[in-house]
Computed example of a mutant assay.
Amino acid sequence: MNLTVGRGDSAVLFTQLDFGRDHPYFVHLKGIRQGASDPQRADRVNIVTGPCLFSDRALSLRDSSGRELNILGSRRPKWSSPLTEVCVDAGLSIYEHESILRQSRAAADVAASVAPSARVVVNLDVPRVQYYFHLLGTLADRYVSPELLDRWFRLVDLRHAQVVDCFRRRLDIELGRACPGRKVLVRVSAPLAAVEEYIRSDAARGRAPVLQDLVDALAQGQDHVWKMLLDLESPRDLSELGVLSYIVEELRAAGIHEGADPTLAVMVENYPEWKVFHRAQRLLRRLVAHGWSDRETGPHHMVGMYPLERMFSVDATGDWAPLYFNDPGRHARDEKGDVVDLKDAVSDLYRL
């Protein structure tokens, strides 16, 4: 059974997928190949999952003219006055809450479908340092002070810890139901850890970090996947460096840098992340072609699995819109006019 979401050029096809439990999914799939995509045939399965931070409603910024700014949209704000205030909601947004419930369940179902002898790793790839970049670029133009930037860093770090903790706890529950007794290693990704201190040190002095310095530090560090990637790609700005950091984790999951065991990487993420997967897949082929991996030690295969949300918004045109960019807030009214707690509603949709 298929389901099309959206209209016109934005329409996306989702296919029903059943893991044998009582909650089939509608998923958008990428990279499926006969045999190579079967988790039963892989010696190692690395699952990459995790949402972004905040949402457009959960984060608010204000400049000295009183103007509110949105730094999470696809269009970067045009800065004209110094930033004076950064505020975030204390609790997780509806987007974060729904993503954690949906992705943790799907990741556990993938883990349960793997051969009993295979090694399974779940990589929680929740961004942190990547979010520093949203305001770092304004430092050189004096639109943000070092003090306010430090507050932003601390807010990001706190939110990252909240999301990771919530995700891990929920994943433990889902794994316990889907594959009780199975050993699954859970790790938290930190692809930009090698440059975090460079960034913080420069920011504390009121200096924006030099992009090439960050690239050089990553290329010369101990992370072989970064070395491979930067041999082929050169980021044009901090935002692009952030995108490459997501690609690094997908390539790492594919096992391009280690071992001879057949490895399957499964990305269990929100649909908009398919663009990262597409780039990672092309780069994987280029890395193999450039001799970074022996074809005989593979296969190194990647699959993108994007489960459809059970709650999502519609935009002003009535089209499907992700909760990240169209967060309705905590409460809404139903057709009778009664107030509905959307967080409770989402929890009910994924109740065990």
Rank of each mutant, 00 (worst) to 15 (best):
V156E: 06
A332M: 07
D327F: 11
Q34N: 07
L230E: 01
P51T: 10
Y131D: 02
T317I: 00
R33P: 02
A217V: 11
A11L: 09
I247K: 00
A108T: 06
S81F: 15
H28S: 14
L185P: 00
K183R: 14
R119Y: 05
D315S: 10
A36C: 09
S113V: 08
Q16P: 03
N46C: 09
G66E: 07
L230P: 00
K78W: 02
G298N: 10
D125S: 14
D125I: 00
E233N: 01
D348C: 06
L229N: 00
D43T: 08
R295F: 08
R282Q: 13
A345Q: 12
V346A: 13
G91N: 08
G337M: 10
A161P: 01
N46A: 08
D125K: 04
L251D: 00
N326C: 14
R285P: 01
R207I: 04
P328D: 07
L69D: 02
V86F: 03
L192W: 04
T4P: 03
H300N: 10
E85A: 07
V121T: 14
G206C: 01
L158F: 13
P209R: 00
P77W: 03
V110Q: 02
R310K: 15
Y350R: 10
R351P: 00
L29D: 04
A321P: 05
Y324V: 07
S93M: 09
N70A: 12
D202L: 05
R119V: 13
L148M: 11
L264C: 07
P77M: 07
L83Q: 01
P24A: 09
L349S: 14
